[in-house]
Nucleic acid binder design. Sequence first.
DNA 1: GTGAAAGCGCTAACAG
DNA 2: CTGTTAGCGCTTTCAC
Lengths: 341, 341
Amino acid sequence: MAMKLDEDEGITMSQPKMTDVAKLAGVSPTTVSRVINRRGYLSAKTINKVEAAMHQLNYRPNTVARQLQSQKTMTIGVLVPTVANPFFGELTFQLEHYLFNAGFKVLVGNAENDIGKERRYLQQLLARQVDGLVIATHNHQQQIPEYQNANLPIVSIDRYLRATIPNVSSDNYAGGRLATEELIRRGAVHIIHTDSVERFNKRDYLRQQAYQDVMREHGLTPVTYKIDFNSRPDRLQAFFNRIFDEHPEVDAFFTSNDMDAIQLLQVARQRGIAVPDQLQVIGYDGVPTTTQIVPELSTIVQPLDEMAKTAVDLLQREIRGDQVAGSHKLPVKLRVSGSLR
Amino acid sequence: MAMKLDEDEGITMSQPKMTDVAKLAGVSPTTVSRVINRRGYLSAKTINKVEAAMHQLNYRPNTVARQLQSQKTMTIGVLVPTVANPFFGELTFQLEHYLFNAGFKVLVGNAENDIGKERRYLQQLLARQVDGLVIATHNHQQQIPEYQNANLPIVSIDRYLRATIPNVSSDNYAGGRLATEELIRRGAVHIIHTDSVERFNKRDYLRQQAYQDVMREHGLTPVTYKIDFNSRPDRLQAFFNRIFDEHPEVDAFFTSNDMDAIQLLQVARQRGIAVPDQLQVIGYDGVPTTTQIVPELSTIVQPLDEMAKTAVDLLQREIRGDQVAGSHKLPVKLRVSGSLR
DNA sequence: GTGAAAGCGCTAACAG
DNA sequence: CTGTTAGCGCTTTCAC
């Protein structure tokens, strides 16, 4: 029956608040607040009384009220194209992991490559609902004015937003060089690079730039195809089939992400092209989940773990008031597997 | 220079509030509030003045203050094992999609199969920081007392939490039957079922139950192996190798999820077992991303889209005060592909 | 050691 | 059509 106490007293009562606890414990709300926050001098007796009362009422301090008072939400907004994509799923996971350890919660939004949705998220989140923002979407920043006059700590992932917004990415230039040089070293000559169309700034073209530089240094002709990141599988397959038709001499691909590389491997199999003997492939990303599913794919591994850690670190510094603009590049490494000979 | 107005006035000013707008527009805060919320009668002139002032100050109403006043956060907490897993990534995506359309934001937490972390999330979120919760984690609910006295709308996904908490799942029994019957129909006799160890309630055993029922109906001997959902790839491979060693006669598998099925296919390839000629495989989940990556896998497709929609619908009804307990099962379908002969 | 009063930014109730 | 007042639940001065 003692166990029923809460219900007896509380079944009709809405959520208890501080004054309820204070009344039950026979102290003032201020004292209850002090006990919760362990602030100031308190007698052991008072602490016990208050804690007993809180327990009895199953009291939880109202987070929103504390947020209003403290002017902090301890929440970070994370905007990605979609967490359904393994890359952004892993990124979101890593961000949440580090943010949680730093005391923050995560509000996620899938922009779904919809500029309108991204803007609506920004409008809501910029209204002091979060203490900061991590932006990993792909939409054209110039169509999203909110980024220009945003007055909140922001970190972008692998994307240029504004001079004063720090950006975290893998070392795209090094990755592009690494992939291209490796393919050449292994005998490839007709190497095609596929890249995303969603790049709107020179700083976002570094993989392609590296590929072209390396090709030219070796006296080879660079060929780059642009892929729409949103392409459904069937359109992707048609896309790769077209490349094979237009370039029957191709003996290697460097794709801008692993999902594309995987589609490419399927098309190659359908066309009876042997990998790696006739065709070598290197992707980009190296997300653990994808690697687990398709271990034979060679790829440039982005250190998503370190990238998330860096992003969280930068964000915390921004929140503290530091200036931390600039491009933060993390080292990549090559994962050699069955798609290389 | 007119473009610089904001900065001239606002560079040193912190975030403007309603009184700032009111002062600039020469009205009371209440009127500003009315304009924002389009409530009551307002003269066109006043609306214009206020909107001009809001625009000039780049004013955004403080969300937290509104939340405190309205006693609503329009935010839903979503707890999953990890969004890095394609199944939960897709689930989270779908949930966010429907929640956004219903006006809600999403706070995600990765429980990481850590009971402590799941509890800390619950303690925080139950403190009125969200208007409801979607629980898709795998931890043992009996080790998480918060679920028993949680005083907030909750929906669970494919998992029993408490009698009064509605649960959404695919029709696991039908799915188990469908898979097993299909394998038998296609000539399999020694069919092994692998299932997750993270099932703590009879209601969570329906796939296994269906498998066993069908096997017995056909005079076959059911063999179920339990897998730890968290197993790293190498441990999973060792696990499947052990099964092959212990049951060299096996000619089909029905696995409890596609990731396991994919590892199984890799082990079969390593051992030189031909799929589907020597071994047929049916997985469970049928997430679009996974299907795109491994199209040859046959599987029972869960309608994640419909499940998310249903969960959001139930949650909204709970928030309105309706009683909506019970188990909500959605129909599955078989996807036939290369791993079936 | 503890309490009373003011205020975080907004909106609902009540006037006028 | 618009303003004044009070209050959402908490914390932070400032007293005592």
